[in-house]
């Protein structure tokens, strides 16, 4: 019979919890960075198969600016 609890688990408990905390911290950092990067992009808008006159006007302005 194999016991789930081995003395190795007890010995390494502190280390395993530490690694777990580091991984959680890393996930929190990646999540936080994603939130900051996305919120700092400003309002974003793209074509989503619905007529958006403001997108067309912006494209026209850019064309005019490029001499097109």
């Amino acid at each position: 019979m194999i016991r789930a609890e081995h003395e190795l688990h007890k010995r390494r408990r502190g280390r395993n919890f530490g690694v777990g905390a580091l991984l959680l911290g890393f996930a929190a950092i990646v999540f936080g960075l994603s939130v900051v990067k996305i919120t700092n992009l400003g309002p974003t808008e793209g074509f989503d198969h619905v007529a958006r006159p403001q997108l067309e006007m912006r494209a026209a302005d850019q064309d005019a600016g490029n001499g097109g």
């Binding site: 016991r3 190795l8 010995r11 390494r12 502190g14 280390r15």
Partner: peptide, 21 residues
Amino acid sequence: SDASLHSTPISGAAAGEPELR
């Protein structure tokens, strides 16, 4: 036996077991 299996220390993992620090 089960007892002998689990009382055998894992090699290299005795007193010198590294800790997170």
